[in-house]
């Protein structure tokens, strides 16, 4: 199986603080990979480097064996990378369906599509596609509602749908299950498994280890900006270095 994403010796510093230190890992095409680590390990920084919000200091990132290190953030959705956010970043004043339509933007970015009155002719193909994706995600009861009025768990899943409708090769999910109850987590898992089975590669940052174990086959563990372990979920929970990172080492002087 080939890799969809390669990180090679990626480094990033903020001032004198090295936040990402020589991190390399690969994500296999079609896989469901988790990126875990204690708070402040650099998981979200990795996501921001991948989506182009930050520039890497050294090393490189490639998608489908093409170096994308220099590609600006706006163009990265065109080459097949889409993401959700740790804190909900839906557009609060837009309706559910309009938020999903924003996810389609790069597929419809011609002058003709930009000036077609989507809101006046409601039976257009983009609205239908967006509605279809909402139905598939079990969110079809809210298409016209302004998202700021919807429950947290629903907003969280709309964000995933918005990222999915851009047809990404690689979907980056930053704590998709955070704050969800068990029913909502289960629904999210079904949604992600469906996306995965249709060929989208998932890279998930998540603290909920049960969710990670149920969803992912491969786990990368970061601590203080370094990769400390890589393996299956079962191996991870047995690895002494990982346990030390989460629970503290035997030789700590806490007492």
């Amino acid at each position: 199986m080939s890799n969809v994403l390669n990180l090679t010796s990626v480094e990033k510093s903020f001032g004198g603080l090295k936040v990402i230190d020589n991190v390399s890992f690969n994500v296999k095409k079609g896989s469901r990979t988790a990126l875990i680590g204690p708070n402040g390990a650099g998981k979200t920084t990795i996501f921001n480097l991948l989506s182009g919000i930050y520039e890497v200091d050294s090393g490189n990132i490639s998608l489908d064996n093409n170096d994308i290190t220099q590609i600006p953030a706006r163009k990265r959705i065109n080459i097949g990378m889409s993401r959700s956010f740790q804190n909900i970043r839906l557009m609060p004043h837009l309706s559910t369906i309009e938020n999903v339509m924003l996810g389609q933007h790069h597929l419809a970015n011609s002058a003709r599509e930009n000036f077609f009155p989507l809101g006046l002719i409601k039976t257009n193909k983009w609205a239908k596609l967006a509605e279809q994706s909402l139905i598939e995600a079990g969110l079809d009861t809210y298409p016209g509602q302004v998202v700021s009025e919807l429950p947290y768990g629903v907003q969280k899943r709309i964000e995933v749908v918005r990222a999915l409708v851009s047809n990404p090769k690689l979907l980056l999910l930053d704590e998709p299950a955070a704050g969800l109850n068990s029913t909502e987590t289960k629904e999210l898992q079904i949604l992600l498994e469906k996306a995965s089975s249709s060929g989208t590669t998932l890279l998930v940052v998540e603290h909920d280890m049960n969710f990670v174990r149920n969803l992912c086959q491969h786990v990368v563990v970061l601590n203080f900006g370094r990769k400390i372990f890589e393996g299956t979920p079962d191996e991870v929970s047995r690895d002494p270095q990982v346990l030390e990172a989460y629970l503290g080492g035997n030789d700590n002087n806490a007492s």
């Binding site: 990265r76 959705i77 970015n109 989507l118 851009s166």
Partner: peptide
């Protein structure tokens, strides 16, 4: 009502996320 208008309103709400979704 157009996609251009949708882009305008998304920028109003969150410029950085609009950028990540490919809005110029």
């Amino acid at each position: 009502s157009t996609r251009f208008g949708l882009s305008m309103r998304s920028i109003h709400d969150d410029e950085n996320v609009s950028l990540l979704f490919g809005v110029n």
